[in-house]
Design a protein around this nucleic acid. Sequence first.
DNA 1: CTTACCATGTAAGGCGTTACATGATTCA
DNA 2: TGAATCATGTAACGCCTTACATGGTAAG
Lengths: 188, 188
Amino acid sequence: MDKGKNIMATEKKIDCVILGLLSHEDLTGYEIKKRMDTALKYFWGASYGSIYPALGDLVERGLATKRDGAENGRSKLIYSITGEGRAYLKAWLALPVEKDELRYETLLKLFFGKDGGEGQAIDHINAFQEKIEKELPYLLGAEKTLKNVFDMDETHKYYLLTVEFGIKTYEAYLAWCKEAKEMLGLTE
Amino acid sequence: MDKGKNIMATEKKIDCVILGLLSHEDLTGYEIKKRMDTALKYFWGASYGSIYPALGDLVERGLATKRDGAENGRSKLIYSITGEGRAYLKAWLALPVEKDELRYETLLKLFFGKDGGEGQAIDHINAFQEKIEKELPYLLGAEKTLKNVFDMDETHKYYLLTVEFGIKTYEAYLAWCKEAKEMLGLTE
DNA sequence: CTTACCATGTAAGGCGTTACATGATTCA
DNA sequence: TGAATCATGTAACGCCTTACATGGTAAG
C-alpha cells in the first residue's frame, strides 16, 4: 500500500497526464483528448470515459479548477491547474518510473507463427510495417516544426525528446520488418 | 460486438497466449508463468491471477485438458492443448492484429520534463538506460542460442524473429538515450 | 534450518475501454 | 441538408494486478 518514499496517495497516471497538460495551458476535456490522440499517442492513450471522470476528481481534490467558457451557445468547461496541482505534478515527476510497458500483439502472433504458416507471418509483418510507415511522417513533421521553435520555448525541447524517441524506434521497427521478411523468405 | 469476419466469440488474449504455449508443449500453470517472464516478457506479460482462471476456462470450453502430473508428493497439474484448441489458435492467428500498444511512463515524465527540471529528466533517462542495458544481454544470449538451432526446429525461427525485434529496438533505445542526454546537456 | 523455488489458487479492487446518450455548430 | 467536428458525460462491463492463503521440496 505504501511504497516507501512515496507520499502521494496513489498517483493514478491519468491524473498525472491531465495535470501535465494543464500545466502548459488551460484546456477542455475535449481538447485534452485531442492532445492524447496526437502529441501523446505514441506512448500514452486515454478515452473520454477516463478523462471526464478524472477531471471531476481533480477538481474535487483541489488539484484543478473548472470554469465556464461557453462561446456563442456552445457549452464548454475549461480546466486550469491549481498550485496544489502543480505541487502534485512535481512530486510525481520526482518519483522514479514504475513501469514501461509494451504489448505488441503482432509479436505475439509472430511468436506462435509456426502454427499459422509463413505466409500469414509475412502478412502480419506487412500490416505492422504499413501502420508504422503511415505514422512516421507525422513524427518527422513534428520534429521539423519543433526544431524551428527550439530556443523559443523550453517546453518544446522536452516534447522534441519524445518525438525523437518515436522516430528512432519506428525506424528500428522498419529495419526489423525488412530483415524479418528476409529471414522468413530464405527458407520459405 | 461482432467484428465482421471474426467467428470467435471474444478472443481473450490471455487464452491465445496460453494456447500458443501449449501448442508447443504440455505445461503447468507455473511453467506458463515462467515462459511469460522470460521468452515473452519483452512484449507480453501476465500474472498468476489471470493465468490460473484462464486455464480453468480453457478446460471448460474444451480447448485444453488437465491431467494430474504429481511427482513424489509434489502436486502438479499438467495442461495440454486439444484439437479444438489448435483450431481456435489457428483461427486467432489468421485474424488481423487488433492493437499494438506501448505505454512508457518514462516518456510521459519526459514530456512534462520542463516542470521537473533538467537534472530530473536526465535521471529518468539514465534509469531507463540502465534497465535496457541490463536486459539486452539476455536477448543477445537468446539470439546466439537460437541461431545455433536455426534449422533444427522451425518453431525457433519464429521465436528468433521476436528476439531480433527486441534487440533492434533496445539498441535504438540506447542510441536515443545518448542523444537525448546530449540534447539536454547542450543548453543546461 | 532457512531460503529459494515449485506449485495452485481466490478475492478485492483498480483501471480503463466501449457503447450509449445528447446536443450544438460549422462547413461543404 | 447532411457530415464532420465540438462538446460532455454515464453505465456496463472486461480484464488484469495485487495481496492473500497455503503447502511441499531442494539446496546450502
